[in-house]
Design a protein around this nucleic acid. Structure first.
Lengths: 189, 189, 189, 189
DNA sequence: AATGAATGAGACTTCATTCAT
DNA sequence: TATGAATGAAGTCTCATTCAT
């Protein structure tokens, strides 16, 4: 079957795209991405038929990665607040440790290059957080917010927190705690 | 100097840029912007020497507008919570009523086309909010957060709130109130 | 009104296209055409938005030129046979003296790049010949063929004649006469 | 030599090329031809080292096929006019029933991709027609035209006739007869 | 100052051909 | 021999910017 398409190359292209886009924006040439990935210009297109497709896949990949990071070692049996804190920490840490991925994701989100369907797919999977909100409300631990609104608040506070940590890494621990504190009061009781 | 540069044309260009960029992204051609503004392609460059300059001016203009909107009819003598609520409402309303401007601003913020200096200038002027936070902390009305962190929390919660209102305009009032509630608990005491 | 688009440049591009396509086929790069025309690569596209448009205009232009050549100095009052012979001679001469144009036209005709509408427009204007056929039939000077069929026969015999003259220029006069002789007998009586 | 090159595959490629080129022109990708032929992209090149070679072989094959079609059931002993009519009918029928092959052949003929030698080879084999012309002239049945010129006239009138039949299939028989009538008068006496 | 044609670098994508499997 | 991924040159077209009018 000739050479099979290599998962490795696909990943290299995606990784290169993250790097390049993070610092040159979505207008970055596919040629540069291919170059950094160590493949020929044309090869990029055997893996992603168009630049838009690459961008959409990239978005989906990054979203999935963030989701996995958040849910890794999720302490299913811990008290609600601890579980929320777990997710919070994982989210913030991922952002802090993957600034290029985060920056690229930010560009993609505000761009007009994501298909509606892609955007929908990417938004899925914060269901776990919404479940926690429902649970918290039921147990009277949380103020009654629409679950998706609460989840969005978590994300936006986490993003803000990450911004501050990246600007002042020395106070990382402070911001992480202060951010969670704000979150807990914002949506908790 | 035959004809002086007209303020009117400058504004038309900026307004056109908002519209075009909101729906085609920063990659939108200057020619299209000029077209919508009703001036010739070349004319655009007598008002803004380069596209980047235009973008930077645009950013500054939008930021200033948002700032003014927030501070309009600021009730300097009202209680802290009311003043905060005033700012909150103005911010949210501006976003809800100016979706194109907001979208364009979002693109500019994540882009790599803003000069460091521009970005700095744009961030100024949230001083008023920071003052309020200091005041609140002093009076023991607010939890002790770094003032700029608290201001950033306000902005991020407002953005999230706007997103939801735009998606479900029927519940606008609910989200606006719920958002402020979250904010007040997040940073207040 | 800035620089007006120059008829001259448009013609230069068309002329260059004839030359280049005649010897490299329709696949010839627009860059090469622009180069020969003495304009920048991009300029070609201010005159013809796409290569296909250029090709269609080119076809129409060549067809019009051939038509004009055929009808130049048309002896409206001469006997039918003389008028037919006039057209025949003009057609053949044009082909013999404009081999590049003829070759380019041939490529365009068999290509799939002409819009249906273009092809229709190009075919018009052989009306004069068809009229002559009707007249000839009425006067019993010509065998009863559908007028457009007779016109097509004229064209195809002329093309064949031109081919032979180009291959053996010494016998040009012989072929031109023999060709007309064949034509006259083919459709005449 | 493990597996011998299969005649079958070679033919499939040629047949696919006819189809594809007929409707996409000579610029059609070899990959698409291979696809329609049911072989891998690379396989095409084990049968035809380059695209140009494929094109040349294709031309030769189609010419040979047309020649065979024309000469099939040739009534060697019939009167001259009947033999000519036989060839005429075979030619016209082949064209009418093989529009894709005819269209492809037309593209090849006007292209610049046929080697001089190929073109020469392809033109051979109309010798039979030329012989008939010589015979006709000798018997004073035909006007004295150079034999190859007469043969070319036959071909060009046949092509014109085919065009009309394809456009108006209902009158096929009329056009075929009228065309031959034109031919007979054009070169006969 | 205003216009819009002119410029040419550079973007994305295609494709004949090669080569690892 | 067959496969199809890999290659990179080349093609069409776009666009910020310049400049003649």
């Amino acid at each position: 079957m000739a050479r099979p398409k290599s998962e490795e190359k696909r990943d290299a292209i995606l990784a290169a795209a993250v790097q390049i886009i993070a610092d040159q924006g979505l207008g970055a040439p596919t040629a540069r991405i291919a170059g950094l990935a160590g493949v020929a210009e044309g090869t990029l297109f055997t893996y992603f038929a168009t630049k838009d497709l690459l961008l959409n896949q990239l978005y989906l990949g990054l979203k999935a990665e963030l989701r996995q990071a958040m849910m890794a070692t999720y302490p299913a049996d811990a008290p609600l607040r601890d579980r929320l804190r777990h997710i919070w920490d994982r989210y913030v840490d991922w952002g802090v440790h993957n600034p290029a991925k985060r920056r690229t994701l930010a560009q993609l989100i505000v761009s007009d290059r994501l298909a509606t369907e892609t955007r929908a797919l990417g938004s899925e999977g914060f269901a776990r957080i919404e479940d926690m909100v429902r649970e918290g409300v039921a147990q009277d631990l949380m103020r009654e917010h629409p679950p998706d609104f609460a989840a969005a608040i978590l994300a936006s506070l986490a993003e803000t927190t990450i911004d501050f940590i990246l600007r002042r890494p020395d106070s990382a621990e402070n911001y992480r705690a202060a951010g969670f504190d704000a979150l807990w009061h914002a949506i908790g009781r």
